[in-house]
Simulated scan of single mutants.
Amino acid sequence: MNNAVPRGTARSPAPAGGGPVGAATSEAGPRSDHVPLLLIHASEQDPYHHYRLLRDAYPLVHDHSIGAWLLSRHADVAAALTDPRFTHGHRPGDPPCEAHRGSLPQAVRDVVERTAYVLARRIARRQQADLVEEFCRWLPTGTVGVRGRGARGLVVAGVCVAQLSLRERALASFLANVLDHPDQLATLREHPELIGRAWAESLRRDPPVLVVLRRASAEVVVSGGTIPAGADVACLIGAAGRDPERFRDPDRFDVLRQDPGQLTFGPGDCPAVQLAALEAQYGLRALLDAMPGLRRADGLRPAATGLLTRAPGTLLVRPCG
Rank of each mutant, 00 (worst) to 15 (best):
S12V: 15
V21A: 08
V21E: 07
G22V: 10
A24H: 04
L37E: 13
H41F: 08
S43K: 14
D46E: 13
P47D: 11
Y48L: 11
H49M: 11
R55I: 10
R55A: 13
D56L: 15
A57D: 12
Y58V: 06
L60S: 04
D63A: 11
S65C: 05
A75G: 03
L81Q: 01
F86Y: 08
G89R: 04
G89Y: 07
H90N: 09
P92W: 02
G93M: 02
E98Y: 12
R101G: 01
L104A: 03
Q106N: 01
A107R: 01
T115M: 01
A116I: 07
R121V: 10
Q127P: 02
W138S: 06
L139M: 04
T141K: 01
V146H: 00
V146E: 02
R147F: 05
L154S: 05
A162V: 09
Q163G: 12
L164D: 02
E168D: 04
R169I: 04
L175R: 04
P182T: 00
L185H: 05
R189E: 10
W199H: 08
P207G: 09
S217V: 15
V222S: 07
S223N: 14
G224F: 14
L236A: 03
A240T: 09
R242Y: 13
F253D: 00
Q258H: 10
D259R: 14
L263C: 14
P271L: 00
V273I: 15
L275W: 02
E279V: 12
A280P: 08
Q281F: 14
A297N: 09
L307D: 08
P312L: 03
G313D: 02
